[in-house]
Design a protein around this nucleic acid. Structure first.
Lengths: 328, 328
DNA sequence: ATGAAAGCGCTAACAT
DNA sequence: ATGTTAGCGCTTTCAT
């Protein structure tokens, strides 16, 4: 690849002038501008961003960490954040990470300007480790993370009250046996997972006993959800309301219920979260929680740019909205 | 962030020794190794990959270009390729690009080691422009691209015979009015789109007239597909076989047919492509074309590493498989 | 076995 | 208005 030096030589100017022209800093005469432009085109010159970043101590690269890109919520988030970042002169690096913090730390070696977490698999200890790098970070979360290093701004999606609301509606419809398909593992993670908390709080608020309500943990995709719901039904005494942590899981649940010869919503109601395209297109269409991913993306990057600007930003809570469709 | 110099100072050795230790090149005494390791941990040192890449003239960054990450096929591809790349010491940069080649060119400024295209929106002219950078590239394609610069290895997914096969089966089942929901725009793109070609060839092979078979272009997601199929049905004289370019579109078609009170597969058969989770979980489940994305990802990166090694690689054709389920 | 030093391509302060 | 130059953090050759 041609370098700035090559361009300077061909254009008969100094390398500095090329920089001035390319970056629109410093003065370059119209005559030289033209010569430089010509040389750039002839040589197909592109500035070496590695060198530029090294020198200017800012990479203009943002890192987005997801734990499951195959989940449409994450896919949309990648779509919008990448787009907005680019429109603002930043390139998005993407990492699909389960629990390999080493990976993230390695990528930080590229001197990323900022990190966006969209993963429910990163633990507090791992956040703490990454916080040490001093890189402005944001986490889009459905977790209650206490005592997180303030270098990590939390954008909390209020799925807790959303799921509570769903429980209210289900109970209002007469359902007494509810089940929740959680994305997280049981134990510590479950205690801070807002969706799981919402379910438990909803159950308690409605005077039901949480022990009698089944929470199925570790649901990671629709196939998985399908199998678990199938098992629930085969075991007998199945729930009449199946509340899922996301739309994909709800699609799997729908299928299992359908195969068992049960009708949705007459025999069993099912709900999702995320309001993805699937929720509209499925049969029956899904009652779900709308989280405007476009809006979340915009807010996230607004916050990121503010942070990169050295300004402080408090944590943010993003409200959600129940979308009633056919499945409940 | 701490630099190599800081580590050297704290450990009481030269910066070179730190490099030797970190990269396992050159000799370092056990005693110094220990000191260096201690200093690294104390300072939370991470090598600056920007500087390393600049110096060693290889970034170990791969660029993946998609045009629609919200499509599950792309999402899975991102998932697997990112994973395999990392296992081989490469970081994947991700770009969701419609037709903005400038964006790709800009990212190339990071001296990416290789580029993987998974987009049906990149035109030959755009490939040609990027080929000029001399970066080993691969395109995972469902297009017939003639005369492409050999710096771009083509991994062709044989969707052409797959769709022809679907047409055969549909006609064998007695269908005479078929429709194809294409992802590409009509015109030049459609002529090189293997799926569209497969449909046309299949129709002709079966002695039907292509003029009487509706091809709907520019279908980009399930909502879109839903609307178009709804329109087809409302217009009357609707097709009894709706062949879709991907599973997501088929889900939308399914919904439209269902709303019209028609039964799948009794009144209308519908097929997808990709064999995503949705195809298994939908009701009815989808007859679709299986393309093992995991395998495609593995092959793609095998080819990439071979290319990065300076070896030549011929274009590859990846076979596909028809998966019969309930929708046809 | 270890260190000094050149240089990767760039920015920006400074000199002219 | 344009050029010279130091230095970003690193690798690697060459001396010691």
């Amino acid at each position: 690849m041609a370098t700035r030096k090559d361009v300077a030589k061909l254009a008969g100017v100094s390398p500095a002038s090329v920089s001035y022209y390319v970056n629109n800093s410093g003065y370059v005469s119209a005559e030289k501008k033209e010569k430089i432009q010509k040389a750039i085109e002839e040589l197909n010159y592109r500035p070496n961003l590695l060198a530029k970043s090294l020198r200017s101590q800012e990479s203009k690269q943002l890192l987005l960490v997801c734990n499951e890109i195959r989940n449409p919520f994450h896919a949309e988030l990648v779509y919008y954040t990448t787009k907005i970042a680019y429109e603002n002169g930043y390139i998005m690096l993407f990492a699909n990470v389960q629990d390999d913090v080493d990976y993230i730390e390695q990528i930080c070696g590229y001197q990323v300007s900022g990190i966006i977490f969209a993963s429910n698999k990163v633990t507090k200890e791992q956040y703490d480790r990454i916080a040490k790098f001093g890189i402005p970070s944001i986490t889009i979360t459905s977790m209650e993370m206490d005592g997180l290093d303030p270098i990590i701004t939390q954008i909390k999606i209020d799925t807790e009250s959303a799921i509570m609301n769903i429980v209210d509606v289900a109970v209002g419809l007469g359902h007494r046996k509810l089940s929740f398909l959680a994305g997280c593992p049981s134990g510590e993670q479950a205690r801070i997972d807002l969706k799981t908390r919402g379910f438990i709080k909803g159950i308690e608020k409605n005077g039901l006993h949480i022990e009698e309500q089944r929470i199925i943990y570790n649901i990671t995709n629709s196939i998985n959800a399908y199998e678990e719901v199938k098992r629930l039904i085969i075991e007998g005494n199945h729930p009449t309301a199946i509340i899922c942590a996301n739309d994909a899981d709800a699609i799997g649940a729908l299928r299992a219920v359908h195969e068992a010869g049960l009708k949705v919503p007459d025999d069993v109601v099912i709900t999702g979260v995320d309001n993805t395209d699937n929720a509209v297109a499925s049969i029956p269409s899904l009652t779900t929680i709308d989280v405007s991913i476009k809006m979340v993306s915009q807010i996230t990057l607004d916050v990121m740019f503010k942070r990169l600007d050295g300004k402080h930003q408090d944590d943010i809570v993003i409200p959600t909205k129940l979308i009633r469709r056919e499945s409940m």
